[in-house]
Design a binder for these strands. Structure first.
Lengths: 211, 211
DNA sequence: GTCAAATCCCCCTTTTTGAGGGACATAATT
DNA sequence: AATTATGTCCCTCAAAAAGGGGGATTTGAC
């Protein structure tokens, strides 16, 4: 192995000096990985990113000044091909979803082992989406439906169609039932959810993961 | 360490005999883990599950007869506290989502190392949600929005409200703009998406991840 | 035999929707 | 300086949809 492998360029954005230096040392110690820059804030980082040309940015989610999640779109504008891995000490459900919707590729807790961090960087470069199983759980939970729904199967089906913006007559046609049946189901749904409109029914059902 | 640790009870449902026996051997070799039963189909497994009292079920997603995803609700009914880990050879985007919405806790590829399999079992028992980074990528991709949306920010905001079942007048009130403005935006949205109804606009926007 | 679920039927009023036309101010870009 | 995109608002119109009220019937599960 005399050939020089392509170095993977990493940028750190993390306000805690100890963690910043620790990660820098750890990553630089690994062959094929190098920290090209380590910033303590997003404001500091942004002007330098286009020159840094990072393959991966490790971005703290709890930063002073501009929040990590707000930084994601700005970073994506400057260096669109760069993958962003979020760093966090504790899992904040809301922050996880915000980061993922804004374009982060993965989610690491700061107490991860060196091995896991290097693994994660490699996997994100390879097109994967590393995340701790705890973070994965938050994400997966968002897919799970509530087992204690007061709605019957049929009612749930219909409410899902309503939530997709379908009119009652369209639902009737697609489910091969009469418009009156759809109306009847919706009436029952409203009673069960204690609402009086499509909007509130959808909101209530989504809040409780009935749909 | 003279005390007997609690054994973690595992049940396998997998039609390929080689994989079934391989996994059984591997898991039984690990201390604290034992395969209490290994079935080749869901139909075979269901009657025995309540006696097996598994902590974790490893469930093949591509089974002859009843599909793995259809089995999940039935298993949940019989043994609601059991965690279900899906096994798959290749990542099927649709199947991943179906399995997760129906209540699976994680997702393993069959070529995973013994270590990763044991790790995954332990993590799911500890309340995590193990999945390969490739599967995680599918899941995370579902959160990402399309950056090439033809819709403006404001139009996207409004379409999101429409997709939440809100009426135009409600949207107007909540966004502190006139009903006419909302109508105007929606007209433009329809033109841009080349649709003529709320339903189609929502469908089109969701398909392309504009919202 | 009772009950829940799913189906269908009638009445009624109010609200919403979609489509057609247009106007105007402020940014941003060229 | 001129053009374009965006966001705001205005008017009319007919058709569709929504919401609420009262019912009935059949099927299957328990």
């Amino acid at each position: 192995m005399t050939e020089a492998k392509k170095q993977i360029r990493v940028v750190l954005i993390e306000d805690d000096e100890t963690i910043r230096e620790g990660f820098t040392y750890l990553i630089n110690s690994a062959p094929d990985y190098s920290v090209v820059n380590a910033y303590s804030s997003v404001e500091d980082a942004l002007p330098g990113l286009q020159e840094d040309k990072p393959d991966v940015i490790l971005l703290d989610i709890e930063l002073p000044g501009m929040k990590g999640t707000d930084a994601i779109p700005k970073i994506k504008t400057l260096v669109p091909k760069t993958f962003i891995l979020m760093l966090t000490v504790y899992e904040n459900e809301e922050a996880v979803f915000v980061a993922l919707t804004k374009g982060a590729s993965g989610y690491l807790t700061k107490n991860s082992s060196t091995e896991k961090i290097i693994d994660a960087i490699q996997e994100v470069v390879d097109g994967g989406a590393p995340m701790s199983t705890n973070v994965a759980k938050i994400v997966i939970k968002s897919f799970h439906k509530n087992q204690n729904s007061p709605l019957t199967k049929r009612e749930t089906e219909i409410l899902e169609q309503v939530a997709n913006g379908k009119s009652r007559s369209k639902i009737a046609k697609e489910m091969f039932i009469d418009l009156e049946t759809v109306k009847s189901h919706i009436k029952n749904i409203y009673v069960k959810l204690n609402v009086h409109s499509r909007e509130d029914a959808i909101k209530e059902a989504k809040n409780n993961k009935y749909i």
